[in-house]
């Protein structure tokens, strides 16, 4: 099983930063466009302030790949479209986070090994 997970991590293509941030932002709950921009800004500690062009370009790709889906929001007057993660998107995010965890562990292990010398 561990072998399969490692193999999947190896095969999965790394996600771009906007895509990773969008998927992470939608992991907790669905959001509309502006809420995504604000949440991504706060997620990245103010480092990433996504423009609308970048945001909607990434959203279009994610919709095409079936990683997110669009739905009508009922409770707000202005923002009518919301986005939420699909099971496939959740799986892709999980794979990417596993890949990053794997890399982080390897990085720390090497740092520790260097310090021990």
């Amino acid at each position: 099983m561990r072998h399969v997970v490692t193999q999947n991590i190896r095969e999965a293509k790394p996600l771009t930063e906007p895509v990773l941030l969008i998927l992470t932002s939608l992991a907790a709950h669905p959001r509309h466009g502006y809420a995504l921009i604000k949440d991504i800004e706060s997620l990245s500690g103010g480092r990433v302030r996504m423009s609308t062009g970048t945001l909607f370009g990434a959203l279009r790709r994610l919709l095409e790949d079936g990683w997110i889906e669009r739905f009508e929001l009922e409770d707000t007057a202005r923002q009518k479209q919301g986005y939420r993660l699909t099971a496939q998107g959740r799986g892709a995010l999980q794979l990417e986070l596993d890949r990053m965890k794997h890399l982080t562990r390897a990085g720390f292990a090497r740092l520790r090994a260097r310090e021990a010398i």
């Binding site: 302030r49 996504m50 423009s51 609308t52 062009g53 970048t54 945001l55 909607f56 370009g57 279009r60 790709r61 095409e64």
Partner: peptide, 17 residues
């Protein structure tokens, strides 16, 4: 400026796709 750059980049990406 960020919005203009984002729009141009986004439009180019949309045309390519």
């Amino acid at each position: 400026f960020a919005e203009i750059a984002g729009l141009i980049g986004g439009a180019a990406g949309a045309w390519l796709a």
